[in-house]
């Protein structure tokens, strides 16, 4: 639950009340992961826009660079979450019954 709240907070800026309560069927971690991916896509789109604004002269170089860094960090965070998820799955699958 703590992880869900953390990820919901990161992905959406603010955790909606639905995510902090008991996860309903089909919600919870899956949904949080989905929102994380959405935020990666969002920051990527922002970075694209900032770079094209910089190229056509209406934006600043530092704005483009900051948007790129933000997209990069969000992607790295998502990759880390995914790594942890896969690792936990593998640990459980290797568990002798």
């Amino acid at each position: 639950m703590a992880i869900e709240q953390l990820i919901a907070g990161v992905a959406g800026g603010a955790a909606p009340p639905a995510a902090t309560g008991r996860p309903a069927a089909g919600q919870g971690f899956e949904q949080s992961l989905g929102r994380l991916v959405t935020s990666v896509e969002g920051t990527n789109a922002d970075a694209n826009q900032a770079v094209s604004r910089m190229l056509d002269g209406s934006g600043d170089v530092h704005d483009a660079m900051i948007a790129l860094q933000r997209a990069d960090l969000t992607l790295q965070f998502t990759v880390q979450v995914r790594n942890k998820l896969v690792q936990a799955y593998q640990d459980i699958m290797r568990m002798p019954v």
């Binding site: 907070g9 990161v10 800026g13 600043d60 530092h62 704005d63 900051i66 960090l73 965070f77």
Partner: peptide, 20 residues
């Protein structure tokens, strides 16, 4: 990452101001 985002936003606004 909301808090550090705010820090970066504050610095970015300063960059724009110094550019002006």
């Amino acid at each position: 990452m909301s808090t550090l985002n705010a820090a970066i936003d504050a610095s970015a606004s300063a960059l724009a101001a110094e550019r002006a």
